[in-house]
Design a protein around this nucleic acid. Structure first.
Lengths: 196, 196
DNA sequence: TGTTCTTCATACTAATTAGTATTTTTTATG
DNA sequence: CATAAAAAATACTAATTAGTATGAAGAACA
């Protein structure tokens, strides 16, 4: 990777971490260049505005991560019910990067940015739709394979799962304690079993 | 109501509306006093800091609203399953104040403030716990009345319902379209029926 | 090696921010 | 009505904000 490309990536990664923990609005460019040890000139060479950098984080950090960790595994899934539980459980309880206190990066950005920034909304919508579509396809496949009841409506379930996930992530932020995840997961498992 | 008390209430109400639509951090005191037509002197007479005002909004606007519209009705409920559906459905589809685009005021504040402001966290936790407790009690009552299966764990269900609500509110912000609520509600009804 | 384009560094600006100091007006009460 | 306290108005400050102007290194290539 060229030195310039490396500078750009460093900015995106460090800025993403700051934004994940502090929020987008409250993360200043001065703070980003201080923690990355990149000068303002370098920053504005790579990104015309702060918002352009924000969208780049979604495109170049969040989307690829999403693809690797959730989309691809779900596409391989034969038994979606069990795999959904494992995926959500892993995300909530095991993932080494995500922290209870700071919630879900995608959920956070959606909450903060989507009502008044179109570029963010579009990028986030794409990302979320990709996840949703993958879940829907997995359920349909599960129905064909006899793992999921035929009267289940895949789109409804996809919305329900993703909503629950975002919601419990927000709950976690409030309580700052993984125990809420445990309680949630128990009911989540029960719900998933009704789809079998 | 005294003129001073009226000034205070006006500030809280208008500030709440601004914060609901724009977020807390991005709502400036200058903007609040501009829309309320109250001077800075008056603002700082009533509130020592911006954060003090923020907490006052939770205590004096959100909590009473919550109590009137959700807690009290739920406490009266005989058949919680049906009433939960109606309550959430009303909130999502009918409530005249809440807008898809702006999500849930409590969820928004939690998302934005809880990781780094303790005063906000505490006030919000109290509020949410009150709602949660009310739901739990309603389920227990429903179990005694034969409306809810005995093997249902009330706390799990309460978390599951509230999470789903917060999550779909966030989804709504992203899509800015009530149709996501409709899809959600269909699955929500199915889920609730499994508790009968 | 000299030149050109890419990448980065430095110093600045104008606007906005929360909050303060001080004075003036309004209200309540004797 | 006089007076004191409550409530509000005005003008300010210091810090922070995103973004800019300009020039200096660095790399690529003739």
């Amino acid at each position: 990777m060229s030195k310039a490309a490396n500078t750009r990536l460093t900015i995106l990664q460090k800025a993403f971490e700051l934004i994940y923990t502090k929020g987008y609005q409250t993360t200043s460019i001065d703070e980003i260049i201080a923690t990355t040890k990149v000068t303002k000139g370098a920053f504005y060479y790579h990104f015309k505005t702060k918002d352009e950098m924000g969208v780049a984080i979604i495109e170049e950090i969040l989307k690829p991560t999403m693809l690797e960790n959730f989309i691809k595994p779900t596409e391989k899934s034969q038994n979606p019910i069990d795999d959904f539980y494992n995926m959500i459980s892993y995300l909530l309880m095991e993932d080494p990067f995500l922290q209870v206190k700071y919630g879900c990066p995608v959920g956070n950005l959606t909450q903060e940015m989507s009502p008044w920034n179109n570029k963010f909304s579009e990028a986030l919508t794409e990302l979320v739709n990709q996840w949703k579509t993958t879940i829907i396809k997995a359920i349909e496949k599960g129905q064909n394979g006899g793992f999921v009841r035929k009267d289940v409506v895949p789109e409804q379930v996809a919305f329900f799962i993703l909503s629950g996930y975002w919601g419990i992530r927000n709950f976690g932020k409030l309580q700052n304690d993984k125990s809420v995840y445990v309680v949630y997961l128990q009911e989540f498992k029960k719900y998933l079993n009704t789809l079998k």
